[in-house]
Structures are given as structure tokens and as C-alpha cells.
Amino acid sequence: MTSSTPLETRPLGRTGAAVSVVGLGTWQLGGDWGNVSEHDAAGVLDAVLDAGVTLLDTADVYGDGRSEERIRSALADRGERPFVATKVGRRADPFVAEQYTPENLRAWVDRSRRNLGMDTLDLVQLHCPPPAVFSDERVYDTLDTLVEEQAIAAYGASVETVAEGLTALQHPGVQTVQVILNVFRRKPLEELLPAAQRAEVGILARVPLASGLLTGKYDESTTFAADDHRTFNRHGEAFDVGETFSGVPFEVGVAAAREVAEIAGPEESTAAFALRWVIDQPGVTTVIPGARNIKQALDNVAAASLPPLTDAQLADLERVYDERIRAHVHDRW
């Protein structure tokens, strides 16, 4: 399909790019969400690009490069390509701040350039590194050099915590901050998004559906494949537990999501409703939900055409957060 109405776009910080308010996160197309076939991955990418999405977010560790390579294949036959944001740093072994050397950063960037088939990467984000990295001037100096050499056009940071985001914003070369933001993770609204607006830094909102909780399709008996992070990282066994269900205990999130579905009403997709909430937060540039199939992908894109939530709906969502969610997540991230 081809979108008859172009998606709303917003400036991505000071990069000079304008990107669609709904992008596509491509973790699912690499791994850790159960198997997504080549056919399904290509279908998702083609569907969102035909629907007007102009930002794809990936990382070098999604499927050990598979996500980046699938994006390269999807873009091979397209004239005008979207803005592609990737991330580097999680290949560090061991995963410690000392691994973020100029040599390693350059090697990681060069690998992504090969995977994506791009001489100059549009945006490279530090991929939720150890906290000390956000204060390491050597890291930013290296990224500045890579910009000067035109290996990358811009750089930013993907963070786990608000505090990390605020630290990243202190560095003038940082063009974007990627952070978990959804109706179950509201803390960035207090300080991080206003600070990013003041600094003219773009915000990429990830995990906007709380790993699928905010689709309203799960119940307490729902299970996931063994190779899905919603199974193997439910308690933070593999990486920060905040990346899985936004850090909300599954049964708590399922019950809260039922209330969100009721607030959205029977005429509205719960997922699109939850995405619209993110789009409307001041300071957000784009929201980057993932999708495992074409239907999910197009349902997500539909959020861009929804009207803003009503004051009553916003108040009800805040009540659900305060009553069910806040105690589990607010002070942790």
C-alpha cells in the first residue's frame, strides 16, 4: 500500500532531518522476539516505508547484524531512502566502560556501515552503555572525529535512566536521546523531555507499547517463546529488566493494560491509542514501535492519524499509572 496522506514529520534535533512521528524499531527483525522470517521482515519494512514512515531504528547487536542487513536489503531497490538510526556499543566484551575505546568505537561504526551499505551513517547512538561512558570525554571526542571524517552524520545516546539522559545532554555534540517512554513509564516527562527541548535535541521514544503489554492482547496465561526476551529477561537475567515490559511485573502490567483498553474505548486500537499518547508528549520527535508482521506495523502507523487524547482520557491514564505502576518503576529509571 502507499499512504495517501503523508505522515506528520518533525525536526530531529539539529540534524537537519525531518522524520515521521511514527518510525519503526527493528529489534524484532534481528532477534530476541522469537523467529521472524526473511519474508515477514521484508514485508514489515516494505509496508511501513510504503505507508510513509521515514525513520528506521536498528542496532549492530540486533541478531548480530541481521537487522541492519535486512534494512540494507529492503532499501536496495528504493530511490529515496528513509533516515536510518543505528546503535553501537553492546558488542563490547566484557561489557564495561573501558571497552569504549576509540579503536572499538571506530570498528563498531565501520561494521554498521558495511551491514547497512552506507558510507555515512545518518545517526549513531551509544547503545545503553555503562553509566560512566556518558561522562567520558574521550568517547565524545571520537564521535566528533567520526563526524568530521563523514563516517557518521550525527550521534546521540540511547539511555536506560533519566539521569543518563541528562548527562548526555551536557555534551554539545549529542543530537538525539533515545529513552523508554510510554503510559507505564512517565518519568522522562518531568525533566528529560523539557531539557531536550531546551537543547534542541531530538527524542526517540522506544518500548512505547511496553513490550506488547499496551496492545491489550495479553492475559495472565500468555506465554512467549524461549528465545523471546519476554521469557528469558523477565527478571533482568540478560540485560536491564526495564527493557522487558518496561520493568513492570507482568501480571501487574496485564491488569493495568485492561484499564488502558477501557479508557481507549471499543472503537480504538489500544496500541494506536497508547502510541498517540507518546506522540503528543511535548519534546517527542518520533515513537519507534516494533512489529513482527504487516498488520502490527500498519496498526502502529495508524496512530499518526488519530486525534489527541481527551483531557478525561489523560487524567484516567495518569490515575492508572499512579495506582498500579508508579511504585514499580518511577524511582528506578
Rank of each mutant, 00 (worst) to 15 (best):
N233E: 11
V254P: 00
A107K: 11
N300E: 10
K87W: 05
V96E: 14
E267Q: 14
M1C: 13
I71G: 01
I325N: 04
A272T: 09
A154V: 10
G89I: 03
V48F: 10
L275W: 01
T142N: 03
V201Y: 12
I180Y: 01
E262I: 12
T145H: 12
R186Y: 03
E98V: 12
V22I: 08
K87C: 08
L193R: 01
T15E: 05
T286H: 10
A154N: 07
N35Y: 13
G165K: 02
F239Q: 07
A226I: 09
L24D: 02
A271E: 03
T145Q: 14
Y140G: 04
H235E: 15
A264E: 03
P289M: 04
I279D: 04
G63T: 08
F134D: 01
R319D: 08
V207S: 05
S135V: 13
N300A: 12
L204D: 01
A210R: 00
R319A: 13
R276L: 05
T9H: 02
A315N: 06
R234I: 14
S73I: 15
V48W: 06
W27C: 13
E251G: 07
D136E: 14
G236T: 14
N35R: 14
G63L: 04
E268D: 13
P94W: 10
M118Y: 08
Q281A: 12
R186N: 06
R114A: 15
G89N: 06
A238K: 11
A205V: 00
A157V: 12
A199M: 07
R230M: 08
G117E: 11
S246C: 07
T161K: 09
R78P: 02
V320H: 01
G156T: 02
Q125R: 07
L309V: 14
R14T: 05
D77Y: 09
N104V: 03
A257H: 04
R114M: 12
A210K: 01
V159H: 01
V22G: 06
F232Y: 14
V174F: 09
A256C: 09
I279L: 11
L214G: 00
S211R: 04
C128F: 09
V22H: 04
A41L: 02
A297G: 01
D280Y: 05
T9W: 00
Q281D: 12
T223V: 15
P266D: 14
L169V: 07
V162F: 12
W277A: 03
A302T: 07
E237C: 07
R258M: 11
L317W: 02
K295T: 15
Q170V: 09
I288W: 05
R70H: 03
T310A: 15
V284Q: 00
K217V: 13
Q313G: 10
L105H: 05
L12R: 02
R72C: 11
A42H: 01
A76P: 07
F224W: 09
A47C: 11
V19W: 00
G25C: 10
I263Q: 03
D119A: 15
E262S: 15
Q150M: 12
S305P: 07
A205R: 03
T142G: 03
T310C: 14
G253E: 00
D280N: 11
G247C: 10
I71P: 01
Y321A: 07
D93A: 15
K295G: 13
D141R: 13
D240F: 05
V207Y: 03
